[in-house]
Design a protein around this nucleic acid. Structure first.
Lengths: 154, 154
DNA sequence: GGATATTGATCAGTATGCTGACTATCAGTA
DNA sequence: TACTGATAGTCAGCATACTGATCAATATCC
């Protein structure tokens, strides 16, 4: 373990690095310009119409200060709308647009292809096992980052 | 797989996110101010005295444009020295300083502790298996990122 | 030897992620 | 109701990562 390449932290970084590169390449090949982070936000907004930014952040484990910029860019691309909440004037409600829905639908094959490519060195069984172990490690460490996963409303 | 939290790419991001947070917390508790990226660079420079930036980048799979800033900060902290190579005037030779050596020695327990914490949800056997699977997936995807691992000189 | 290609390093620009601070608003309570 | 604390969102600042460009220096090939 004396060498970075043998450490879990370094492997985490490398795997993430490859995952992002594969995602971007597949999505660009499909003719779209969307980052992994933007995709996850968009898909989650579609599945939870009208949610506010803090709730969105909790559902995908983003920092609330990071979400601001991600939302900005999705709005700029006309994929979502951000408007003041009538019930809480501090909050913004997020809604997917028709354009966002269309993009999400057309981009799905590329996203799924990317998930397969990043596991291409593993058998199906190994891929499942890797995901199981990642989920388990993540669950145990959830509270250790500033942006933990929050399944429910605060 | 229709939900981000079930996708390998998202799990990769989450695990990396936790790994970085744990690393920073452990290192700060030990009284140091060093990022995972800076640590890996410093350790690799110590193990390969006089290497140039491209070689360093290859050994830890950093992008060459990223390395520039990392090196800047390590130099600023007096942990390494950067000087022109006598053999190739384009290249810079990197050398760890006494201060860098001292820091590396004192920080090691915190770094190792961090590696344990980020796997704390897994048994020893599961942790080994996770690392094996990550290494295998990474090896298969090595060439897919702009900054692949390069074990040897270009 | 000289044109050409390649390489090492840097830079500008963009997108995450984070820390810490700040404003506006809301909720609970004395 | 006024005070207090908590919450939603944003901002400035810093550190990765990347794309693509540029500059200087080295290699290669004719």
């Amino acid at each position: 373990m004396s060498e970075p390449n043998d450490m879990p932290g370094h492997l985490a970084r490398r795997f993430q690095q490859i995952a992002v590169a594969v995602f971007l390449a597949e999505v660009e090949d499909a003719g779209f310009d969307l980052t992994p982070v933007q995709y996850a936000a968009l898909a989650t907004i579609k599945a939870n119409p009208g949610l506010d930014q803090v709730t969105l952040a909790g559902l995908i484990a983003y920092d609330r200060t990071t979400i601001t910029g991600v939302i900005d860019r999705l709005v700029q691309k006309d994929l979502i709308e951000r408007r003041a909440s009538p019930r809480d004037r501090r909050a913004r409600e997020l809604e997917i647009t028709d354009e966002g829905r269309r993009t999400l639908r057309k981009i799905t094959p590329a996203v799924e292809s990317a998930q397969r490519i990043m596991l291409r060195g593993l058998s199906a069984k190994e891929g499942d096992e890797l995901m199981r172990l990642l989920r388990k490690a993540i669950a145990a460490g959830n509270e250790l980052s500033r942006a933990p996963l929050r399944q429910t409303q605060a």
